[in-house]
Design a protein around this nucleic acid. Structure first.
Lengths: 343, 343
DNA sequence: CCGTATTCTGGGAGCGCTCCCAGAACGGCG
DNA sequence: CGCCGTTCTGGGAGCGCTCCCAGAATACGG
């Protein structure tokens, strides 16, 4: 006759563990949370009881009593097709997951759409549903980062909004990556090296252009604005930009596109114009995505250590939650040029 | 001086909402949970108080008191590179997210590795950390589904383990998809139509082969086992299989690969063998991934409605959690042939 | 107009845990 | 051997909510 109504799916409670180990609830709690102020003998007894009973702490109770949730949110901008595209999303998730594996932190996935939703989100996040927030694909005008900062919620973003980012961030070295791409083209004897840029309100895209410019002047290939065509990270945008470049500088012999997808668009146009890759025009992309590997010819591309970025973001966030380093680290991870057939 | 220690980041509690509305805690709770047993007048008062205070219920307290978590877990097999690859993961997440957007269910992302971890996972999941589980990329021998079933935990999987699946599942019509691919090839006048299969312990891969076989005999192209080459969904596997096929049936004039990635491997081999696509050999893949769109020539492929699968999985799970339909629905969503240049 | 059925409402109990305080047990020193 | 400091321990209080039970308010029939 249901002496005790089945609590929580019949799982043992801390109290039961304590009783079994012959100690008090407080002591059992101490052992489970790794407090040092427990005698070895007692500790063993509690640990044995935990094992025998298959005790797993109730998260909700913990969260309620401890005023924390042991959960972090990965906030993903839903409308951004780009972020969802290979390889970004999967790899970030994989990296974050790896960093969290040894922790008992949970990963909450939160898809948000427009700015209104983002504001509402800030409220929800603070209503103590998470201990910290991972932000990806943040635009310069995004209200969320500042909101989180005001609320004092630990947060780390991938990429930065500007050179003087106030939140903790993990970025890849877009500047050096672009430089390496241009350097490689130069070393292959290319002179009329053009670039197709990403949207300039994305800091990373800015840096790729900066890197291009710096490498060009360093190579003594003075600035020629006709070699710079703006686009928006899309395939169609890449194609359009390539057409412009061809019109303005028909002698172009290399193109550095700030994303693989734009490179794919450019390739299409080059092919239609009868230019052979890499013989007539060398082509380099950015991201080292599946698109690059399967393009024909296989695309040389600048690889970002995305999985490692995810891992690093998670680690930085965990530190921040633990109350360490209040100095908002700005981490920049190296990029790497992956040379294939297109250059 | 700190009359009340800042609770929960200073957020209002139900009690405060109730006080402000001039009602009891119970009544306030009823309004917030949409109980009908509240007078319209009272309801309005509470709703006003909620709005003024910006009240958001504390999840942990709710979970503890209500013995539910309002959270579901998406369990992702970590070692499986395939699942993480385009387009599966992103699209499933997107679909699930969309279905959950109107709910206040949270999405927990759980990456699991080997079987040992999976067993441990079952324990954690039951320790009432989630109300339900979404399983993707399940193998025939996976212990997790049965574990969840025993524990009575609501669960839905993508794909099935066999024809007689006991858990709720959402699958795509692999059989019809394969049939459509073969039918298309036949209608283009191909006769020596080969197939490169996926691992046969994956039910979906089985069904694709079944669909191929059925369509072949229907077209009067009797069975020829030499036209069937097994592989493992990998690019290298696809290449190997293609070499076999070329050796066994040099007259092959079409290949249906059970995944785009395998098709990419096959394309490589065909090209090296001097066979033109589609002139000499037509090629069709499965998944309609980015790889297909960017392949040269663009790959004809069978599209699965992955995002919709995600949405459907979430909906079925929510129903199951709500206690509806205990009959474990087996849903099969239609596939669609996307014809491009390779066939 | 009263009794009874029917709504509506307030608040006690309790979910399982952490925090913290006070008391018990132990140790070292004079 | 007694005193005080230190370590260890038990358990009360409380986190914010839901569940549920009585009691209050209202409605209805005779």
């Amino acid at each position: 006759m249901a002496a005790a109504r089945v609590r929580s799916g019949g799982r043992p409670t801390l109290e039961e563990v304590a009783a079994r180990a012959g100690v008090g609830r407080g002591t059992a709690s101490r052992v489970i949370n790794g407090s040092p102020r427990v005698s070895p003998h007692t500790r063993e007894a509690v640990e044995a009881a935990v094992a025998e009973l298959g005790y797993v702490p109730n998260r909700a109770a913990r969260a309620l009593a401890g005023n924390r949730t042991d959960a972090i949110a990965l906030v993903v901008p839903e409308p951004e097709t780009r972020f969802f595209a290979e390889p970004y999303f999967s790899d970030i998730v994989r990296g974050v997951g790896a960093a969290l594996a040894d922790t008992d932190m949970q990963l909450l996935l939160t898809l948000v759409g427009n700015d209104r939703e983002r504001r509402r989100l800030a409220q929800y996040l603070t209503a103590h549903r998470v201990d910290g927030v991972l932000l990806v694909s943040v635009h310069a005008a995004d209200p969320l980062p500042d909101l989180l900062e005001q609320l004092g919620m630990p947060a780390v973003m991938s990429g930065r909004r500007s050179a003087s980012e106030t939140l903790a961030s993990v970025d890849s070295d877009n500047f050096a990556g672009a430089g390496a791409a241009v350097g490689h083209l130069v070393s292959r004897g290319r002179r009329a090296i053009a670039t197709i840029t990403g949207p300039q309100d994305v800091y990373g895209a800015q840096r790729r252009l900066d890197g291009y410019r710096a490498a060009m002047s360093e190579a003594g290939l003075g600035p020629d604005e006709r070699l710079i065509a703006p686009a928006d990270f899309s395939e169609e945008g890449g194609a359009r930009a390539m057409r412009e470049l061809l019109a303005r500088r028909p002698d172009v012999d290399a193109v550095f596109a700030a994303s693989d997808v734009m490179a794919a668009g450019a390739r299409q146009v080059l092919r239609e114009a009868g230019r052979r890759i890499p013989d007539d025009v060398a082509l380099i992309g950015f991201d080292d995505s599946a698109v690059a590997r399967h393009m024909d010819p296989a695309l040389t591309s600048v690889r970002q250590p995305i999985e490692e970025m995810g891992r690093t973001m998670a680690r930085v966030l965990l530190d921040e939650i633990a109350g360490e380093h209040r100095e908002r680290p700005q981490i920049v991870l190296p990029t790497e040029l992956v040379v294939r057939d297109s250059s």
